[in-house]
Amino acid sequence: MSDDREMKLRATSIKNNPFVDVAAHLFLEDIADKQGAAGMNTYLMSLATSLAKSMPEEEYDTWDAFLEALRAGDSILSTFETVFTPTENCVVTITNPFERGWTEYTKRIGKLSRIHTDVADYYNSTVKPGAIDTSCIIHQTFRNAAADRISVNGKRVKCAQIATIHSDGSKKIAPDEWLPILLEKAGITQTQLNMFMRNNAIVWCVYTE
């Protein structure tokens, strides 16, 4: 497929549809009303995992080929987000793929329901400390499950969350005891992390073991 055609197809597919995004938030709230934060968390993780599993597996001969696919949006890991790779292991998401939904919700309904952050608190204390709201749980779980479907030179790809900046400006950075290890894996310094966080949405890293 030519680049032009592919770009046109993708442009068509990313048209705005606020109704669906806002409805999705309310759908999650309705589930949370019935199942509470714990049940909701389990539901979101299971949903994100099954979404990743429904997508085709990937294999690359070299790390460079994988990074090229990642940057071009051809990899399952960058299907929903536009990324750049400042180092061979660091990935930066420019805009949070959930931002449009959040913007439409706050514009049309009002302040995001507290249940979205309550569930994130539950996730942070029981699973992994990295979420600001429910969208982060879906996103981070999806990314981990998606990475598991990619192999580079026969080795499974792993990914780890370093920092996220929510649409409202709030931030969640990996705990102090984890951060040096993650920065080393990503090949960036703390100062560079702060620079990326200034005008991007998420900083994460990819690697193989």
Partner: peptide, 11 residues
């Protein structure tokens, strides 16, 4: 992404 996740959720 949320809408694609929603479709998965429906299933």
């Amino acid at each position: 992404m949320l809408d694609v996740a929603l479709v998965s959720l429906i299933q």
